[in-house]
C-alpha cells in the first residue's frame, strides 16, 4: 500500500475527482501555477489545465460566491481558502447563501461546493494562521463540516465531500499535514509513514460523511476528539496507562451521535478534546448531546479540554494549545471522580 502524508492524500483525492468528473474544478489563491502555499494542489493545474484549476484574486467572498455560481451551473467546485483564519470575508456567502440555497429554493437550486481550508495551530502562526473555527460553521444549518485526523481519512473524506450534493466545509489540521503530533513540540517530527493511517490506496474510495471512527476500543473511559487533538489525547491516555476508548468525530455535521453515545454508555466516563476555544465551542454540543443520552450511565461529570478563550497568542503557542498536561489533568479528574 502506498504511503502518503496528508498533503499527498488530499492531492490524490482531488486528482481522482478531477480525473473522474469533468465538472470538478479547483479554485483558490495560489492553487494553480504554484500548487498552493501548502502544496496541496501541486501539479493539478499542469495535469488538468487552467480552466480546471484556477488561480483567483485574493477575495474569499468572491471565491465562495463564484463557487456557488459555478455549482448552480453544473460544476463541482473545490474552493481553497488559504487559511481558515481568512475565511471570514466569505462568511456571509457561506452562511446566508451556500448553506441555505437548497432550503430557500425548496431544492430547486443547490450548490455542491467543497471548501477546503487549513486550520489549527502549532506552526507558530500567531492569531491569524492558527484558528479552529469549526463551531462557527457547525452552528449554521445547511453545510456539512468535516475534519480528518490522518491521510487515509483525509483522502476518503475529501472524495466523499466532493461527491456530496450538499456543500461541505473541509477543515485540514495543518499541524498534521506532514505527520501525527502527540502534543510535544520539542520532540522530533514524526512522519506519516510511521502511522498505519499513512497507508493510502492510490485509487478511488470514500470515507462516509456522518460516521465517527472508533480508533481504539477501551473500557475505562471515552475520549472524543478530532483533528490534531485526537493524537494528543491518544498519547496522553497511553502515557497514563488508561484503557480508553478513543473516538475520532471526523464529521462534525452531521454528527454520528450513535457511535459517541454507545461508547459513553459502555464506559460511563467521557473527556472531550478540541483545539478551538472552549466557550460555545463544538465541545459544548458534544457534551450536551452525551448528557442528554447517557446521563444515567455517567459515573463522572464530562470534561472538556480546549484552547483558552483568547485569540491564539504567538508567544504562548504551547501554553495556549491544549497539550498533554491539560489533557492528562482532565483524564485523571474524570477517572478519579466517584
Amino acid at each position: 500500500m502506498p504511503q502518503m502524508n496528508m498533503i499527498q492524500a488530499l492531492n490524490s483525492a482531488m486528482d481522482i475527482a478531477l480525473g473522474r468528473d469533468p465538472a470538478v474544478v479547483v479554485l483558490g489563491e495560489d492553487v494553480g501555477y504554484f500548487g498552493g502555499v501548502f502544496r496541496v494542489t501541486d501539479g493539478l493545474q499542469r495535469k488538468y489545465g487552467q480552466h480546471r484549476v484556477l488561480d483567483t484574486p485574493i477575495a474569499e467572498g468572491g471565491i465562495v460566491a463564484a463557487s456557488i455560481g459555478m455549482a448552480v451551473n453544473g460544476l463541482r467546485p473545490i474552493a481553497e481558502i488559504q487559511f481558515a483564519d481568512y475565511i471570514y470575508p466569505g462568511y456571509d456567502q457561506i452562511v446566508s447563501e451556500l448553506a441555505r440555497l437548497r432550503y430557500r429554493s425548496a431544492s430547486a437550486f443547490a450548490a455542491p461546493v467543497t471548501i477546503r481550508t487549513p486550520c489549527g495551530g502549532g506552526i507558530r502562526g500567531g492569531q491569524t494562521h492558527s484558528q479552529s473555527p469549526e463551531a462557527l460553521f457547525a452552528h449554521v444549518c445547511g453545510i456539512k463540516v468535516v475534519m480528518p485526523s490522518n491521510p487515509y481519512d483525509a483522502k476518503g473524506l475529501l472524495i466523499a465531500s466532493i461527491e456530496d450534493d450538499d456543500p461541505v466545509l473541509f477543515l485540514e489540521p495543518k499541524r498534521l499535514y506532514n505527520g501525527p503530533f502527540d502534543g510535544d513540540p520539542n520532540k522530533p517530527a514524526v512522519p506519516w509513514s510511521t502511522h498505519p493511517r499513512g497507508e493510502v490506496p492510490d485509487g478511488h474510495y470514500t470515507v462516509p460523511i456522518g460516521k465517527a471512527a472508533v480508533v481504539r476500543e477501551g473500557r475505562e473511559l471515552t475520549i472524543i476528539s478530532y483533528g490534531t487533538m485526537l493524537h494528543v489525547a491518544e498519547a496522553a491516555a497511553k502515557a497514563l496507562g488508561l484503557d480508553a476508548e478513543i473516538i475520532d468525530v471526523r464529521s462534525i455535521v452531521p454528527l454520528d451521535v450513535e457511535t459517541l453515545t454507545t461508547s459513553v454508555q459502555k464506559t460511563g466516563r467521557c473527556v472531550i478534546a478540541h483545539e478551538a476555544t472552549r466557550f460555545a465551542g463544538f465541545g459544548a454540543e458534544l457534551m450536551a448531546t452525551i448528557q442528554e443520552r447517557c446521563f444515567w450511565q455517567l459515573e463522572a461529570p464530562i470534561e472538556r479540554v480546549c484552547g483558552w478563550d483568547t485569540p491564539y497568542p504567538h508567544a504562548f503557542e504551547w501554553e495556549y494549545f491544549p497539550g498533554p498536561q491539560r489533557v492528562a489533568a482532565a483524564l485523571k479528574r474524570v477517572m478519579e471522580a466517584r
Binding site: Y86, Y88, G125, G126, Q127, T128, P313, H314, A315, F316
Partner: peptide
C-alpha cells in the same frame, strides 16, 4: 505582549495603527 506575528507593529505616539495579519 507576544500576541502578534513578527512585523505586526503599532505605535501610539507615532500614530501608526496596529497592523493586522488579515489583508
Amino acid at each position: 505582549k507576544g500576541r502578534q506575528l513578527p512585523v505586526m507593529y503599532h505605535s501610539v505616539p507615532g500614530r501608526l495603527f496596529s497592523i493586522s495579519g488579515n489583508l
